[in-house]
Nucleic acid binder design. Structure first.
Lengths: 147, 147
DNA sequence: TATATTTAGTTAGACATCAAACTAGAAGGG
DNA sequence: CCCTTCTAGTTTGATGTCTAACTAAATATA
């Protein structure tokens, strides 16, 4: 196998794994919830942030601002986040999580336990520990390549 | 880190890498072409198959039949594949690649060299060779879990 | 054989995603 | 101070993706 098709195969495998896992995670979320929306909620809780501009959220998840606008609009309509103007910058917004958003995040976490346990049961813990640092390194290198 | 958050982190990293690479690959493809469509074309050429039912293509790429219908419809409209009824089964179809589809596949391959070389230049070949078998094993286990 | 179940494919409606074009406000340079 | 450039966010139109409900054909079962 040539080096290039090796790289291609690598990304192909990653794509399929991503598809399999995203699908199985999405399937257990409450009606109307998605991985993208859960990720935003989880971000706010994990980092314990008061508020953040959409731009920073877009950067954090490596999506365009247009994508983040789309997701946040739906989340605001569902009452999961609050979006206010940034008083110090007429162009900017401040996004924050609501109490309903926190509750939804907890509910999602609970429901994700099942698929995570399933994955854990077939994957060897050692294999994961071997894999993770390699993947982190790949991701960091690709990230740097982007700049 | 708990076992479950280890698994979660693993899939998170995979998701981000997938997003970074898909975006950079998609960016160089000819106007109107996508990774999904290229994957179908490449599948036919690599495996040197005459024709295949949509169901098998859906299985090969781990997407639903509905998704494959959507992609194939667009590809047929663009003249990249041909879709005929299966003479032996009134429910089925036969999908095959056209000459235009082959030419498009070659063009895509050529254009993908750049991003692949970039990726290759930052990733160590050894690292990829370590990673690949682990990922293949993970994918196979997740696949079996699905059934 | 007649009915029930399974299978292949489609359609409809939803969400995430992108690129490109746009608006509006901020920052900088003359 | 004005004009240019940059930045934040939105809108539009496209694709890929899913689930759920549907049609039609094949298979299994009673």
């Amino acid at each position: 196998m040539t080096d290039r098709s090796l790289v291609f195969t690598l990304f192909n495998e990653i794509g399929i794994i991503n598809q399999l896992t995203s699908a199985s995670f999405a399937a257990v979320l409450p009606k109307g919830m998605t991985i993208a929306q859960f990720s935003v909620l989880n971000h706010f809780v994990r980092l314990d942030i008061g508020h953040k501009p959409p731009k920073d959220l877009a950067n954090a998840f490596q999506v365009t601002r247009a994508t983040m606008t789309s997701t946040l609009t739906r989340m605001e309509k569902a009452g999961l986040v609050s979006i206010k103007p940034n008083p110090d910058d007429g162009r900017g917004k401040h996004v924050s999580i609501t109490a309903l958003g926190r509750a939804m995040r907890d509910e999602c976490i609970a429901r994700l336990q099942g698929p995570l346990e399933d994955a854990q049961s077939v994957l060897d813990k050692r294999a994961i520990e071997d894999l993770l640092p390699l993947l982190v390194s790949v991701r960091e290198k690709l990230d740097r390549l982007r700049d």
